[in-house]
Every structure is written in structure tokens, then in C-alpha cells.
Simulated assay, not measured.
Amino acid sequence: MQLVTAKKDLKTKPNNRLNVFVIDDTVKIRRGKKMPGVSSRFDYLTGQCVMGQQILTLGVASDEQFVPVDNEI
């Protein structure tokens, strides 16, 4: 569903000449005993180990916007 939305959104802005793919690996801090994918991760933003999920997001960025295409835990 994200890919379809991304295609529609990018087609509505034909003036953007520079589009690049961006990969983001964000650590989402989570707490809970029965949450899938929760483990100890090093968070580069805080500089410490935290319990959470690492979420990988692929998106297309231009001068004006960032459109997420797909993400995975």
C-alpha cells in the first residue's frame, strides 16, 4: 500500500528534478515482555544500548518531501 501511495504522490510533483533513495535505520525504544523483535540495540542518537526494535525504512527524498516506500522491522 505504501508503494502505491508513494507512486501517486511522486507523480503529482513533476517539478522535482532531484529524487534520491534514502535508507533510514531507526531504533524505536519499546518495553514489554511479549513483543516480537525487541532486543538490546545500540542507539547512535543517544549513544547507549536500549531495548527496542530496529526499523529499516526505504524512501524517496527530494528538495521538498520524503515519501516512505517500504519499511521492515
Score class of each variant (00 low, 15 high):
Ala61His: 06
Ala61Met: 11
Thr26Met: 09
Phe66Arg: 03
Val69Ser: 06
Gln54Thr: 10
Leu3Ile: 06
Lys11Ile: 11
Arg41His: 15
Lys8Leu: 12
Val67Leu: 08
Met1Pro: 13
Ile73Trp: 15
Val50Glu: 03
Asp24Gly: 04
Asn71Phe: 12
Lys33Cys: 06
Leu18Thr: 08
Val20Glu: 14
Val22Gly: 01
Lys28Pro: 00
Asp63His: 09
Asp25Pro: 06
Val69Ile: 15
Pro68Asn: 03
Lys13Ile: 13
Val4Gly: 01
Leu10His: 05
Glu64Ser: 15
Met1Asp: 10
Leu18Glu: 12
Met51Arg: 01
Thr46Leu: 03
Thr12Ala: 15
Arg17Met: 12
Arg41Trp: 09
Arg31Cys: 13
Glu64Thr: 15
Gln2Trp: 00
Pro14Asp: 02
Lys7Glu: 15
Ile55Arg: 04
Val38Ser: 04
Thr12Pro: 00
Val38Asp: 03
Gly59Phe: 09
Gly37Gln: 01
Gly59His: 11
Asp63Ala: 11
Pro14Leu: 09
Leu10Thr: 10
Val38Lys: 08
Thr5Asp: 10
Ile55Lys: 04
Gly59Cys: 11
Asn15Ala: 12
Lys34Thr: 10
Gly52Asn: 02
Val4Gln: 13
Gln65Phe: 09
Asn16Ser: 11
Val4Leu: 10
Asn16Lys: 12
Asn19Ser: 08
Gly47Trp: 01
Asp43Gly: 01
Val69Met: 14
Asn71Asp: 14
Val60Phe: 05
Phe21Cys: 10
Ser39Ile: 01
Gln53Thr: 00
Ser62His: 02
Gly32Glu: 06
Glu64Arg: 15
Val38Cys: 00
Arg17Ser: 14
Thr57Arg: 05
Asp70Leu: 07
Ile73Lys: 15
Ile55Asn: 03
Asp25Trp: 00
Val20Ala: 14
Asn19Tyr: 06
